[in-house]
């Protein structure tokens, strides 16, 4: 650098050769920005098609059941044999909370339990991968109607499926099935913990060897909520052993006490989504 090329920032003009050099640097920076931005944007994992109908309230009529999780059994019509068919729509609360608080308050107001009553509620639908949930919020005055449940032409399917050993991920259903993208995995871990600590019913996400996703509700051996025990195992690959029972279109895993353990390993070295699959030893739920 010769004497004429000395740069002083407080002067209005940079020396000509330095200005030209700076222009080259700026061009390089724009190319760097473009390259990094393009690569990172294009190579992100695909977001799910999950949907949360934010700001849109829908009235849903169904039979309320508090077990295994607060949910509505929504009548979807009769099949060719005249049997009634239903989908189970778990209820979740506003923000990162379960629906129990809202239901309990409504039951308190009405002075009776809504269990096995037909209720009509308005709430926000969220759905993905064949599962639908309904968010009910106290501020929306969700209860529209409550009455004795009508008699339908079919009883609920309850089937013992035996003991299973599975590897999967514990997640909160509200974020996974609609509110957030991604709604699972390490980036979402804290949120899932907060949701499950807030009373949301935990769901176990298992991908079978054909790549299909299966979802199970989690309870402990006694059939009670185990949200606090699951806190340390959320959003990472874990292994568990459980008794599986089918309740219509959801399967509940009654998790054997002390059986949950991490599969271990940083995901960028070891375990990836595709490695989460059903275990074999004592049966599977494929």
């Amino acid at each position: 650098m010769n004497n004429s090329e000395f740069y002083i920032g407080w002067q209005p003009q940079a020396p000509e050769r330095l200005a030209k050099h700076s222009q080259s640097i700026v061009i390089i920076l724009f190319l760097l920005i473009a390259g990094v931005g393009t690569s990172l944007a294009l190579l992100q994992k695909r977001f799910s098609t999950a949907r949360f109908e934010f700001g849109q309230l829908t009235e849903v009529k169904g039979i309320y059941q508090s077990f295994p999780v607060p949910a509505l059994k929504v009548f979807t019509g009769n099949d060719a044999f005249g049997n009634s068919s239903f989908i189970t729509m778990p209820l979740v609360g506003y923000g990162k909370s379960g629906a129990e608080g809202v239901i309990a308050q409504l039951e308190k107001n009405y002075r009776f339990s809504f269990d096995n009553h037909e209720i009509t509620v308005k709430g926000t639908l969220l759905y993905s991968d064949g599962k639908t949930l309904l968010q009910i919020d106290q501020h929306d005055h969700p209860l529209v109607k409550v009455r004795e449940a009508p008699v339908y032409g079919r009883k609920a399917t309850i089937a013992e499926l035996g003991t299973v050993k599975l590897t999967g991920e514990v997640l909160d259903p509200k974020c996974y099935f609609g509110v957030m993208k991604p709604g699972h995995g390490k980036p979402h871990r804290d949120c899932a913990i907060r949701c499950i600590e807030g009373g949301m019913s935990p769901v176990f996400y298992v991908r079978n060897k054909n790549g299909e996703a299966n979802y199970y509700l989690l309870l402990d051996e006694a059939g009670t909520k185990m949200n606090s025990e699951l806190k340390d195992y959320i959003a990472e690959p874990v292994w568990l052993e459980a008794r599986a029972v089918q309740y219509d279109d959801w399967i509940v895993l009654y998790v054997r006490r002390g059986s949950i353990r991490r599969t271990g390993g940083l995901s960028w070295f070891k375990v990836k989504d595709g490695d989460i699959s059903c275990g074999k030893p004592n049966g599977s739920l494929e």
Partner: peptide, 12 residues
């Protein structure tokens, strides 16, 4: 320890 454990692509 965060997003890289979620993404499959090694670009990041």
């Amino acid at each position: 320890l965060g997003v890289i454990q979620y993404e499959n692509n090694p670009v990041l």
